[in-house]
Design a protein around this nucleic acid. Structure first.
Length: 641
RNA sequence: GCCUGCAUAGCUCAGUAGGUAGAGCAACUGACUUGUAAUCAGUAGGUCGUUGGUUCGAUUCCGACUGCAGGCUCCA
């Protein structure tokens, strides 16, 4: 009979212990310090509690708060602790689920009233008290019927429903936080002293099982970290994000505004509109070089078109419609594709014409739920840098590859190196046969593989007419934003009976690719504002040069300098009022103007130009043209060499 | 759309335990003619988001509505 187990430590050393030894016992034997920081363990690659007995030979790694797994466990245990505190303060509350999320955790709770920020403070204070008592968290593997009776007697009806979802489990892990009991797969911390660096962040509603048809629960969010330092730096990151908020900067930098008369719609001020136009110019050049043509289709078209395209059935709840005096119903376009299809359909197409890469900066209108709106990031009317590529089936792979190449290169030029790709496959609400979906999904996967790119699968998230790739970029402070998409589609061309004359003289149906690279110009500008914290690169800056004088006698020379810069298409503003130069510099710095020109007696007399960079360094040019050449060079768009 | 919170001058905010409001910046006027992140003084500016109710009296208390913020759902 084998009463010993061989345990392999991470350094390869093999030690022998009695059967049933626990990770905590092993850690204790290795050293008191390790034992003290033991959160859990990885035994044969599986995460287990520090108290779980080991029955067979195994490799082991002790998990401490220094490990990413350790921090996750801390967050998970914080959720339980939240339950402990909530049940003490609000005994009739019913706990639902308390998972770990990025940077923290939440717990969904059913309670007769909503929690307020004051409740949150009370709960957090109670959690801190409980942490300070350093109580042990005790795990008991418990037979199913006993678990049911425990939660039944405690009126934890949601826990009972969750148990019903696990018909095959004969035993559950129960974690005892003193009088509070939670059910969990675990593992969890052995003692609350690990949970010190947490704070509750917000309350909100959340639907039971995530379905808006179900009752609404209260969700309490928190964040937790291994050390005080990490907690503090996370809270600082949130502050930094608040400072970069594009809604705040949009106001401060005079880029755009929103108002009640047109909710979810942007009023672009001339400075913001300049950024918008610059981005479109950039995209036009890139698309032209990539073999695209640009068209423009109507914003409002007969409802019949949208019925035929399937939008009315699949997307109708997001569409705006309008009745006219002649009893026609028209719809504002929520997407550009049907218009593009009309454009293709006009006139005969030959296989020699394909691929046709047809771009359109189309403004689309989508009725979004009011609660979904968010600054420029989520609006009801926005401009897509859309394009539809019509090609033969055998050209599909190459066209997909080209698009992926283009989008990654553009993001890179604009300063985003960290791009994630998501593949969204057939949704429940869709059109077209499974055979077609097989071909389309394979095309996207093949093109990603041809480029050796990693991607994450999002099953069931595709558009109703085809699967899609989504390009997610990571900004300067580590947040992810979804921008571009690429969708492949054989359904719309079929519905609209699009065709081309092939080599053999027969008519064939083209494949249609839908792609947007910025996605929404509005959202992309929001992302750029936050990524650069309002300090646009010079080529995008609404004002590239501020010309300012030391005092009024030099205004005339300042205007002369300004005219020369203006002729060179450099965007400039004058700041030649009676304020002191220090004040002018402060204002222009706060406006994040990349270059300032200071003009006083010295410059006026010698026809010089002194350039001040936003960073504070200065360069003096002995003639205006040299300064213009220098600034022009710095204001070049990244695709222009 | 749902949950919670918020709404005071152009902006950022204070305030009124119910008696029609105040600061800083910005604007305007005047003085100063100024060299690298705020010169000084003065003037003007608000039906306290809208709308009902309670009250002798509501910006303040209560309700409804609208918008905004954070979530949920959805999504470019």
């Amino acid at each position: 009979m084998n009463e010993q187990v061989n345990i392999t430590l991470p350094d390869g050393v093999i030690k022998t212990y009695p059967v049933g030894v626990t990770p905590m016992e092993i850690a204790t034997e290795i050293g008191a310090g390790l034992a003290k920081s033991t959160v859990a363990a990885r035994v044969n690659e599986k995460l287990v509690d520090a108290c779980d007995p080991i029955q067979t030979d195994a490799s082991i790694k002790i998990i401490t708060p220094r490990d990413a797994d350790g921090v996750e466990i801390i967050r998970h245990s914080c959720a339980h602790l939240l339950g402990h505190a909530v049940k003490q303060l609000y005994p009739t509350a019913q706990m639902v689920i308390g998972p770990v999320i990025e940077n923290g955790f939440y717990y969904d709770i059913a309670y007769e009233r909503s929690f307020t920020p004051e409740d949150l403070e009370l709960i957090e204070a109670r959690m801190k008290e409980l942490i300070a008592t350093h109580y042990d968290v005790i795990k008991r593997r418990t037979p199913r019927d006993e678990v049911v009776s425990i939660f039944g007697s405690r009126n934890e009806n949601y826990k009972l429903k969750l148990i019903e979802d696990m018909p095959n489990e004969t035993h559950m892990g129960l974690y005892y936080h003193e009088e509070y009991i939670d059910m969990c797969r675990g593992p969890h911390v052995p003692n609350t002293r690990f949970l010190e660096h947490m704070t509750l962040t917000k309350v909100s509603g959340a639907y039971w099982r995530g379905d808006s048809k179900n009752e609404q629960l209260q969700r309490i969010y928190g964040t937790a970290w291994a050390t005080k330092k990490e907690l503090r730096s996370h809270l600082r990151m949130l502050e930094e994000a608040a400072k970069r908020d594009h809604r705040k900067l949009g106001k401060e930098l005079d880029l755009f505004h929103f108002r009640e008369e047109a909710i979810g719609a942007v009023f672009w001020h001339h400075k913001g509109w300049k950024v918008f136009q610059e981005l479109i110019s950039y995209m036009r050049r890139r698309q032209h070089n990539a073999g695209y043509i640009e068209v423009n289709t109507p914003d409002i078209m007969d409802l019949g078109l949208w019925e035929k395209s399937g939008h009315w059935e699949n997307y109708g709840e997001n569409m705006y419609t309008s009745e006219t005096a002649d009893d026609k119903t028209l719809a504002l376009k929520p997407m550009n594709c049907p218009g593009s299809v009309m454009m293709y359909d006009h006139g005969l197409k030959s296989y020699r014409d394909l691929p046709i890469r047809m771009a359109e900066f189309g403004k689309v209108h989508r009725y979004e739920l009011s609660g979904a709106l968010h600054g420029l990031m989520r609006v009801r009317h926005f401009t897509q840098d859309d394009a539809h590529i019509y090609c033969k089936e055998e050209q599909m792979l190459e066209e997909c590859t080209k698009i992926i190449h283009l989008v990654l290169d553009i993001y890179k030029q604009l300063g985003f190196d960290d791009i994630a790709i998501k593949l969204s496959t057939r949704p429940e609400k869709r059109m077209g046969s499974d055979g077609i979906w097989d071909i389309l999904e394979a095309a996207l996967i093949d093109s990603l593989e041809a480029l050796e790119l990693d991607y994450k699968l999002n099953p069931g998230e595709g558009a109703f007419y085809g699967p899609k790739l989504e390009f997610v970029l990571r900004d300067a402070i580590g947040r992810d934003w979804q921008c571009g998409t690429l969708q492949v589609d054989m359904n719309l061309p079929k519905r609209f009976e699009l065709d081309y004359v092939d080599e053999d003289g027969n008519k064939k149906t083209p494949v249609m690719l839908h792609r947007a690279l910025f996605g929404s110009l509005e959202r992309f500008i929001g992302i750029l504002i936050e990524h650069h914290a309002g300090k646009f690169p010079a080529w995008l800056a609404p004002v590239q040069v501020a010309i300012m004088t030391i005092s009024e006698p030099f205004n005339e020379y300042a205007l002369e300098v300004g005219k020369s810069f203006d002729r060179a298409n450099i965007r400039l503003e004058y700041d030649i009022g009676r304020e002191k130069i220090g004040y002018k510099i402060r204002c222009q710095t706060l406006q994040k103007v990349p270059f300032m020109i200071v003009i006083g007696a010295q410059e006026a007399e010698k026809s010089q130009v002194t350039l001040r960079h936003i960073t504070g360094e200065q360069t003096t040019f002995t003639n205006i043209q040299d300064a213009i050449d220098y600034v022009s060079d710095k204001c070049k768009a990244p695709d222009i060499v």
